[in-house]
Design a protein around this nucleic acid. Structure first.
Length: 279
DNA sequence: AACTACTCCTGGAGGC
DNA sequence: TGCCTCCAGGAGTAGT
């Protein structure tokens, strides 16, 4: 969603100034200073797993990982051209926010803002030729819409984590990528699987349900934007979030009260009725 | 190789 | 209203 928006508004724009005020947020593996992006043109915006890749002219690239609270907003004055990531600050809030730690000024007067209230987001600057190596080092698994991500692949991936809770296995990025804490909960409630089930204990039909749920959740996220709304509110007509952030509220399917537990130190919301401990 | 615990940060929510 | 405490959460790393 965010990548699609940015890939509509940014290509062709030239960076006239760039600043990242938090040193920890900027990573330059080859020592290139951020200033070298000045005068470079943005050619396109790609995505690999949870990394956004901005291809620049002169064989440079910027990589951005928003982590858990990062937000990118492309603005021209008060006009919002593109926005995505964490919901704080609100998409129509005046920028810079006090947590706006990065800005890229573009040749048409618009600005790409990076705001992160937790300061966990990272921006890498490196030669384009080294992007693949950086991504390879992260040992990322398959994209869930890769044709190779089949039910059989998922079953095999889960078998490698026999005793690990299924919720924890879904967050592991080395077999397949894209699910964070929220979407993992959403995939599990859609598949009707208890988050503490052992990953290796799923039957073929359960793996099939999970496979479909993972793709459905991520397809919805790509088309409609993040499920991350404050306090579990559900957008009018929206399918998500059905689980995450809704502990104590009634299940949208059966009306039972959703529960919150910790799985692998991660907050996990689920429906005790729709997601039984064993099937 | 699989798994757990710890770390990084600080805005915002909730308690009183 | 305002001060205080605690929670969230991706992923790298060290240790078992």
């Amino acid at each position: 969603m965010l990548r699609r928006q940015l890939d509509q508004t940014l290509p062709g724009r030239t960076i006239v100034a760039a600043e990242i005020t938090r040193p920890t947020m900027f990573v330059s593996p080859t020592g290139l200073p951020l200033e070298v992006v000045r005068g470079r043109t943005i050619l396109g915006v790609r995505r690999r797993a949870k990394m956004l890749i901005f291809d620049l002219s002169d064989a440079l690239a910027l990589l951005v990982h928003l982590k858990l609270a990062g937000q990118l907003a492309h603005r021209r004055g008060d006009e919002v051209l593109a926005v995505g990531g964490h919901p704080v600050p609100r998409c129509d809030a005046p920028l810079p926010h006090r947590s706006s730690h990065g800005r890229f000024d573009l040749d048409d007067g618009s600005v790409l803002w990076l705001t992160d209230i937790r300061v966990f987001a990272r921006v890498w600057l490196l030669p384009a030729a080294e992007v693949d190596e950086l991504l390879r080092d992260r040992k990322l698994g398959l994209e869930p819409f890769d044709p190779a991500f089949t039910r059989a692949y998922l079953r095999q991936a889960l078998q490698r984590h026999r005793t690990l809770p299924i919720k924890s296995a879904l967050l592991e990025q080395t077999r397949f990528v894209g699910l964070g804490n929220i979407y993992a909960d959403e995939a599990l409630i859609a598949a009707g699987l208890h988050p503490e089930r052992a990953a290796g204990s799923l039957g073929d039909d359960e793996v099939g349900r999970l496979h479909g749920a993972i793709q459905a959740v991520l397809r919805y996220a790509v088309e409609h934007g993040p499920a991350d709304l404050p306090r579990g509110r559900v957008r009018d007509g929206a399918e998500f979030p059905r689980a995450h952030g809704r502990a104590g509220l009634p299940c949208l399917t059966c009306g039972a009260e959703l529960r919150r537990i910790k799985v692998g130190a991660r907050s996990t919301d689920f429906c005790p009725s729709c997601q039984p401990a064993a099937s």
